[in-house]
């Protein structure tokens, strides 16, 4: 049976972080801090989501002068719908959501 895409604990963590305020543009570093995902895990997920048009990516000038522009992200409408669906499915699947969340957040 093929694996269902976008169901890994890491992707779900990223979905919940992005769904806090879906219209806000988010920075990669802040997402990494919030989800606890290392850059080597976070960015491949962002790349995959962006390639499948589930995520918008844009360059925005940095708030601090003299710094290079920063890459920002937010879910597209499709992405947000998929993220909600996946998170709901994961919550329904897990017999003990508390332990699952604790495991994922480590």
């Amino acid at each position: 049976m093929p694996r269902i895409p976008h169901t890994s604990p890491q992707t779900l963590l990223l979905f919940s972080a992005l769904l806090v305020d879906p219209s806000r543009w988010r920075y990669g570093y802040d997402l990494s801090r919030e989800t606890g995902l290392a850059s080597g895990t976070l960015y491949p997920i962002l790349m995959r989501l962006s390639q499948q048009k589930l995520l918008d990516a844009d360059w925005q000038p940095s708030d601090e002068p003299g710094r290079p522009p920063r890459h920002t992200y937010r879910l597209t409408a499709d992405g947000a719908a998929l993220a909600r669906q996946r998170l709901a499915a994961a919550a329904a699947d897990a017999p003990a959501p508390a332990t699952r969340l604790a495991f994922g957040a480590r």
């Binding site: 850059s39 960015y43 920063r70």
Partner: peptide, 21 residues
């Protein structure tokens, strides 16, 4: 994008972790 975010990291360990990933 990852290189631009490097400036946000604080301290040596976070910098190493960010660069490694």
């Amino acid at each position: 994008a990852i290189l631009a975010e490097f400036a946000q990291t604080c301290g040596q360990w976070e910098a190493i972790r960010w660069a490694f990933g």
